[in-house]
Design a protein around this nucleic acid. Structure first.
Length: 879
RNA sequence: GCGGGCGUGGCGGAAUGGUAGACGCAUCGGACUUAAAAUCCGUGGGCCGCAAGGCCGUGUGGGUUCAAGUCCCACCGCCCGCACCA
């Protein structure tokens, strides 16, 4: 690699070259629209971004989370895809073979809702939206290999997803079971646990109901341990995401044990409980059952009071407020159970509203002394409170506050059966499990919060589950040669529910096994399935199997994945599961079971909200374009608006800025430059009209500088002298911009480029040297503002496309200054500075520092107590 | 309640324990112009001072250090995730 900055401008002596140069310099002002479309055509013609396997270069796969085709791109897309583009273009210019694809996460409810509302077909709606969004996205000048584009609703894609499903079914990773499911009564479909937020459907916001249905599941919980353990290896993922996933998987180690009932209820003679604090067993006060526990159900049949209690609890709902304010309430069943360590010790059995059926066994033993909920309950119903342990020092019995120390904390056991005295909770727990297992009344059990992933959806616009129900053969997978099981086109959306169920003929098929009349499965897959393997498909998007193993081997893993934090759990966990499932079914290599080597979660684009109020005092929101940003009045009426602090751009608050209109008025480079500047990429960035204009002005300034030099440099020829300061500034710019890009600190790269622009503008260096500096600047800007970079590069005689040029390398010698300015502190406060040669010996620096006027003043004739010299950094005189 | 993050000018934000406020925006002043826009140059934390310079200053209070925005302790505030999880 060579340092571009040091390359002299080629001498242009012949008339043809002169003419060409003059022609390039003709434009009178920066016209982004012309410039941008010109270079986009140039890249397309040259095939600059078409990826092909090439073992002579290191590969680099950069991927941004693909968009849902909602109909319009928004600023969040611009930011997300610009970040990916910066990385992709940078990697390209550092000699990598880059794969940077784009596609569409195209199945889903909105298409069906649109069909219901306006009568079209979801496919039509979706493909129209894709066409519009592609047209809006292309002007951004992203370095995308569009030849790999696909939509997940393409039969070609979902055929392979169905093939995968069948392979997973055969591998035992998919199964069907009767399950109580989360039913969204508005969307009329089942939701995964992950899609229920605070008891409401993630999309509809409707209160979720519980229903029992036969559903398809992916066996993700089987991989809970592996998915948890492997998080440690994801060094280039944000800590936050790893923590969120670990919490979601929710591993706990505890003891499962039975309490013998003194009188059986139906078939039940034992109450099975699970506890993570078995060391508190001697503090047991009562046994608690969930209102949904089988024993409770049995008792309800004969006990109307209990049935009434349970009904009321169930009605209580699971909303956040309900839970927070809900009082601990219980119902004494009158039953008793024996304590496993003392058969004469009988504990009462209560049904309590705070016990969940879907965690553990749905039953607990309560130890009020060491659990606040249990304590509240015990105090309310006058149940005993028995301390098991107290603080190691100065411990006193529990009164109104439960003593719940961390498991790592040492406590003094005062009531235990395994000879424990001073021990940590963890030690106590381990000892108890050990004791119970030896005595045979309990088992150490590891539990996970993670549930199997229910993927059945009773919707039309999704990937059909490729199985057939046959009266004789049962559930039979469709033959692979019959894939895709294609969605019928002639469907109606005039009624709620699943159109596939109502279709007159689609369901009727022969059984793939015995050939007799059978019916198709009408459930379609959760759309999260579609996005769980698309990254692998991009490596060979037209393969006739889900993946092409040699292409996958070459391109996988994704080296850098970029997207929103909102996908920290669902999408990323499912993708990790799918990569493992694909490896087990032979569709990915072992190395790809963690598909994303590095993850970056970018912040949102926000904007102020402008509101007025209607006659009833209800807020009315206004688009930024309708408001004068400075005076804060409505342009149309002159009415003042209330300004609400910046929030995520959202249609409902109307605080949106349309990328299309920004591109039209300022160009794509301005939009790209702006979203990369100011805010660190992981944080939110606030879109402001002033900021966008400033970005535009800056790009215009760079363009003008190039324009000026384009003319003068062409006339002047190479320089006789050279300007050391400019060379050094160039080297520093290369160094810092590069570091910024590599460290995902694009805002710092942008800041450095501003600084470098100022330096070049003020430089008195000969024109060819300034032109060289500007060519380097064009390269450094090219990941962010690729079109302007090409324009400047070409105006100043750069060879070929800047997109093909090798990233500049700073000469290390130029990064070190011969002389350094050392600040001089007196007692830690900066008082003066001296300029010294960079390798001046310490003793001489000391001498100079002490001779300094400010130091002399501070010393007032005395001697310093201490003198610290940090070479090349600072001097501190202590007086 | 548990886990994670953050708090720096009027604003967005810089700052391997080593000159706090890089860079951008806003402001103000100047140049160019008949004028305006555009552009260019300068100013740009607060207070005192003509200046040189001084004092204060990174949410609050303590501590470690020659030196703290940065490290430690306690507190306050904001944001995000999880949560009657046994």
């Amino acid at each position: 690699m060579r340092a571009q900055a040091a390359t002299p401008l080629p001498v242009r002596s012949d008339a043809v070259q002169g003419l060409l140069t003059r022609k390039r310099c003709l434009m009178s002002r920066y016209a982004p629209r012309e410039v941008e479309s010109k270079w986009q055509s140039a890249w397309a013609e040259a095939g600059t971004f078409t990826a092909a396997e090439d073992t002579s270069k290191p590969k680099y796969y950069v991927l941004e989370m693909f968009p849902y085709p909602s109909g319009r791109i928004h600023m969040g897309h611009v930011r997300n895809y610009t970040m990916g583009d910066v990385i992709a273009r940078y990697k390209l210019s550092t000699g990598h073979n880059v794969l940077h694809p784009m596609g569409w996460d195209a199945f889903g409810m909105p298409a069906e809702n649109a069909a219901m509302a306006s009568g079209g077909h979801p496919a039509e709606w979706t493909y129209d939206n894709i066409a519009v969004m592609r047209d809006q996205m292309k002007p951004l000048g992203l370095s995308i290999d569009w030849s790999r584009e696909f939509a997940t609703c393409d039969p070609e894609y979902y055929a392979q997803q169905q093939a995968l499903f069948i392979d997973m079914l055969e591998a035992g990773l998919v199964y069907r079971k009767n399950a109580v499911v989360n039913w969204d009564p508005v969307d009329m479909t089942v939701l995964a646990n992950e899609q229920v937020i605070d008891g409401k459907g993630w999309r509809s916001g409707a209160e979720v109901e519980r229903r029992e249905l036969t559903q398809w599941f992916f066996a993700i919980s089987e991989m809970a341990e592996e998915l948890l353990d492997a998080l440690d290896g994801l060094k280039d993922w944000p800590e936050k995401v790893r923590t969120m996933q670990a919490n979601w998987i929710g591993k706990s180690r505890g003891l499962q044990m039975g309490f013998e009932m003194t009188a059986p209820v139906g078939d039940h003679s034992m109450v099975e409980v699970y506890t993570t604090r078995p060391d508190t067993l001697m503090g047991a006060s009562f046994v608690g059952l969930s209102p949904d526990h089988p024993i409770t159900r049995e008792l309800e049949k004969t006990n109307p009071d209990l049935a009434a209690f349970c009904a009321e609890v169930r009605r209580g709902g699971t909303t956040e407020e309900a839970l927070e304010t809900a009082e601990k309430r219980g119902f004494d069943t009158g039953l008793t159970v024996r304590h496993p360590l003392d058969p004469s010790w009988e504990l009462p059995v209560w049904v309590a509203n705070f016990i969940l059926m879907d965690y553990g066994t749905g039953a607990i033993f309560a130890c009020p002394a060491h659990d606040q909920r249990d304590l509240d309950f015990a105090r309310k119903y006058n149940l005993p409170v028995i301390d098991t342990f107290v603080a190691a020092e100065g411990g006193s019995p529990v009164e109104t506050e439960a003593f719940v120390p961390a498991k790592t904390e040492k406590v003094k056991y005062i009531n235990h059966f395994a000879d424990l005295d001073l021990a940590t909770g963890d030690e106590g727990i381990a000892a108890t499990i050990d004791f119970a297992e030896k005595a045979g009344w309990g088992t150490g059990v590891t539990k996970y919060r993670l549930r199997d992933w229910g993927v059945s959806r009773q919707r039309y616009w999704g990937c059909p589950i490729p199985v057939v129900h046959c009266d004789t053969c049962g559930v039979v997978p469709e033959k692979k040669e019959n894939l895709p099981v294609e969605l019928p086109k002639d469907v109606s959306f005039d009624k709620p529910g699943n159109p596939l169920d109502r279709h007159p003929s689609w369901r009727q098929v022969p059984c793939p096994k015995c050939g007799t009349a059978a019916t198709r499965e009408t459930d379609t897959m959760d759309t999260f399935v579609d996005s769980s393997w698309y990254y692998a498909r991009f490596t060979a998007p037209r393969a006739t199997t889900p993946t092409d193993l040699s292409a996958a081997d070459y391109w996988m893993n994704v080296d850098q994945y970029i997207g929103g934090i909102e996908h920290a759990i669902l999408h990323l966990l499912y993708s990790r599961f799918f990569a493992r499932a694909m490896q087990r079914t032979g569709h990915l290599q072992e190395k790809a079971i963690e598909p994303f080597n590095a993850l970056f979660t970018q912040g949102m684009v926000t904007h102020e909200i402008y509101q007025t109020r209607d006659a009833n005092g209800r807020p009315v929101y206004h688009l930024p374009e309708d408001v004068d940003a400075e005076t804060r009045i409505l342009k149309a009426s002159g009415e003042p608006v209330e300004v609400i602090p910046s929030a995520k751009m959202s249609k409902s608050k109307k605080n949106v800025v349309d990328p299309v209109s920004i591109i039209e008025s300022f160009g794509a480079d301005t939009a790209r430059w702006f979203v990369m500047s100011d805010s660190p990429p992981e944080r939110d960035v606030e879109w402001t009209a002033a900021g966008a204009e400033a970005a535009f002005k800056h790009l215009g300034r760079v363009w003008r500088m190039a324009q000026d030099l384009c003319q003068s440099a062409a006339e002047t020829g190479p320089a006789a002298s050279s300007d050391a300061a400019l060379a050094r500034a160039t080297a520093r710019a290369i160094d810092e911009v590069t570091k910024g890009i590599e460290g995902f600190a694009f805002n710092k790269s942008v800041a450095k480029l501003y600084e470098f622009t100022n330096t070049v503008a003020k430089s008195q260096a000969p024109a060819p040297e300034r032109a060289a500096a500007l060519r380097t600047m064009a390269q450094l800007m090219s990941p962010m503002t690729p079109h302007l970079a090409e324009e400047v590069w070409s105006m100043l005689g750069g060879e070929g496309l800047v997109a093909d040029a090798r990233w500049p390398v700073a000469d290390p010698a130029l990064l070190v200054d011969d002389t350094v300015t050392l600040p001089i502190q007196v007692n830690g406060k900066r008082r003066s500075e001296i300029s010294v040669p960079k390798d001046m010996p310490k003793e001489e620096v000391e001498k100079l520092a002490l001779a300094d006027e400010a130091v002399q003043r501070a010393l007032a004739g005395g001697a310093p107590k201490k003198l610290i010299v940090v070479p090349g950094r600072i001097v501190n005189v202590v007086v």
